[in-house]
Computed example of a mutant assay.
Amino acid sequence: MSAWKQSTAAELSPESLAALIRNEIPAIRIENFADAEECAAFTKAVYDSPDLKSYSVATPTHYLGLVMYEYRQDGGRKQEFFDAVPEAVAAQEKLYKQSFDVPQRFRDLIGAHHPGDVLVPSEPDYGDYCPVVVRIASNGVHLHADYAPYNSPDWAIGGIEDQITWNLYTQCPSVGGETTVYNKPWVPAEGEDPARGLPDGSVETDDSIESFTFAPKVGEVVLFNPRNPHKIAAGATEGEGRVSIGSFLGTKGADLWMWS
């Protein structure tokens, strides 16, 4: 485990993106990715959508699209996942028609700072992955870690080298809703089920482990390395949810693979 070269988030540049992929910095923040009107339209479309689903976790968390977490456990449900991709993508495209095409804007932006292509990967014999997921995580999310070579070794994304994640926030609570990232890249313990992505909780109390906490802003994109254990605090403001859209980005040679 190496210390971060700085304790604060960086602005987006080719150098900072490469540094984040190498886990040399805690995060990248892109302010004003979307304006207030765009965010309000997107948020309304999310809450009005009939396609929202709930995670199979104790804390109420909702999503629109597909999430690997729900399909990679208990031996995996690969066929079911890819059968559901067209409907999930269609549901997301309804949101863009009511607001703006978030993933395309992000791909255009990040592509200008990365030497390879930004691609939605395909699973041999199954089809394309779902590129993004929309989440309502107003009640917080427990400590977890995401790294496809451990979480999903039998899927094509298990062949990526490094992994980062990005989220655009279109609604944020005034109090609470912070994300905390701990600089201790996850390695599954013996006997642990990697599909669940549950790292040792001692990272939260070990003063020797660096951490970075951010409170997202409306219209902002934040990127960090999700192999580092991370958690989301519950929002504490009535009527103000925490709505985001984002995905994982995995390095595959010169390219970045984008999936949910």
Rank of each mutant, 00 (worst) to 15 (best):
I160T: 12
I160R: 03
E161M: 15
D162S: 14
I164D: 09
W166R: 02
W166I: 06
Y169C: 00
Q171K: 13
V175I: 15
V175D: 10
G177M: 04
E178I: 05
V181Y: 03
V181E: 07
Y182S: 00
Y182Q: 00
K184M: 11
P185H: 03
P185I: 03
W186A: 02
V187S: 04
P188S: 06
A189S: 13
A189N: 13
E190G: 13
G191Y: 02
E192V: 15
E192N: 13
P194E: 00
A195G: 06
A195K: 07
R196I: 12
R196G: 15
R196C: 14
L198V: 14
D200K: 04
D200I: 05
V203A: 06
E204F: 08
E204C: 12
T205I: 12
T205Q: 14
D206Y: 08
I209M: 07
I209H: 03
I209L: 05
S211R: 13
T213L: 04
T213D: 01
F214I: 12
F214Y: 06
G219C: 05
E220A: 00
E220R: 08
V222M: 02
F224A: 00
N225Y: 04
N225W: 09
N225V: 06
N225R: 09
P226T: 02
N228F: 03
N228L: 02
P229L: 04
H230T: 06
